[in-house]
């Protein structure tokens, strides 16, 4: 099993990347003879982000903005049942159509995005605040506390998240607050492990040792020397985790274990779209949230992946 320190250490990933360039040891020798570092990997990482990346950024931006401004936007009440417009296709009055109770699908879609986004971003924020801080310190300080925390995080991660979440939600009750807290807590050990590994690799670097010998305090070293270096991995991993949490929330909602109806969320909208023969009578109910979910996940993953390439982090078990 590859050591996660190696997977995350940007320095060794640079080496791996160099190795992945065309050629064998013989080529390397030839290239080495000309200059010590190949300029090639720099070229690779400075590759422009490209159209798709900016498209993804825009899409996430639009979704975020509409979720925040949902109350201000000229949208109907997502729960208003217009009995004169049942199960309609897209039209001028209802851009995405209506469901079998005459509710406006666009409005439900926009309001539903709030659940996914709150769970995704707030969950990761909880994970970052607790797990990230612990990982940063634990990786830098090492010692017994580090050993204990590390072992503990392993045990927590051995738990299949979905089962844990379902069990807890069952006994504690399904609300947006509960689900965000539970998923946030589940994120803590993940964040801890990734940031600890990264922090650990930097704690042993020369510049940190140099800062130590110059008498810098531990706090200063962690904040000034280690934190800035850990940020690339953190940002990349956080994005991937946001996508992961959105999937888990969607799964829960699809199973009817997330926010209670009639409050819309993408997961329960998809579920509604599959219930009562709706797939054959009105596939739009399912299609819009499914499409939105696909595009959102795709965008977040793409942004994360492009940043990973730019930051030169090896694609491992991140």
């Amino acid at each position: 099993m590859p050591d996660d320190r190696e997977l995350l250490d940007t320095h060794s990933s640079r080496r791996l990347l160099t190795n992945a360039l065309p050629g064998t040891a013989a080529t390397d020798e030839a290239i080495l003879a000309t200059e010590e570092t190949t300029a090639a990997d720099d070229v690779l990482s400075k590759k422009p982000f490209g159209f798709l990346f900016w498209f993804a950024v825009c899409f996430v931006g639009v979704i975020l903005l509409s979720a925040v401004l949902a109350n201000v936007l000229p949208l109907q009440n997502p729960n208003f049942q217009n009995y004169s417009a049942l199960s309609q296709g897209p039209s001028g009055a209802h851009l995405l159509g209506t469901d079998d109770l005459g509710r406006d699908l666009l409005s439900r879609l926009v309001f539903g995005s709030r659940v996914s986004l709150i769970v995704g971003f707030c969950g990761v924020a909880i994970g970052l605040i607790f797990g990230g801080t612990a990982g940063l310190v634990s990786g830098y300080r090492g010692g017994r506390l580090d050993g204990a925390l590390n072992a503990f995080s392993f045990i927590i991660l051995a738990f299949p998240a979905i089962v844990a979440v379902i069990a807890i939600v069952t006994f504690w009750g399904a609300s947006l607050f509960h689900i965000t807290i539970i998923l946030g807590i589940a994120t803590i050990p993940l964040m801890y492990r990734v940031i600890r590994a990264s922090s650990l690799s930097f704690a042993q670097r020369d510049f940190v040792v140099a800062a130590k010998t110059m008498g810098a305090t531990d706090t200063r070293i962690v904040l000034r020397e280690i934190l800035p270096n850990v940020i690339p991995v953190t940002v990349t991993f956080s994005l991937i985790t946001v996508a992961g949490l959105i999937v888990i929330e969607g799964t829960l909602a699809f199973l009817g274990l997330s926010v209670a109806l009639p409050t819309p969320s993408w997961g329960n909208l998809i579920n509604e779209g599959t219930a009562n023969n709706a797939l054959s009578t009105d596939p739009f109910i399912m299609l819009w949230p499914a499409l939105a979910m696909f595009l959102l996940l795709w965008s977040i993953n793409l942004i994360g992946d492009r940043l990973r390439q730019r930051f030169d982090i090896r694609e491992g078990l991140l």
């Binding site: 799964t251 998809i270 599959t274 054959s280 399912m286 595009l295 996940l297 795709w298 993953n301």
Partner: peptide, 16 residues
Amino acid sequence: GLLALPPFVVAPILVA
């Protein structure tokens, strides 16, 4: 693209 297709998104589409 497949990474962005969790079961609760794909399954209804496949059924449809």
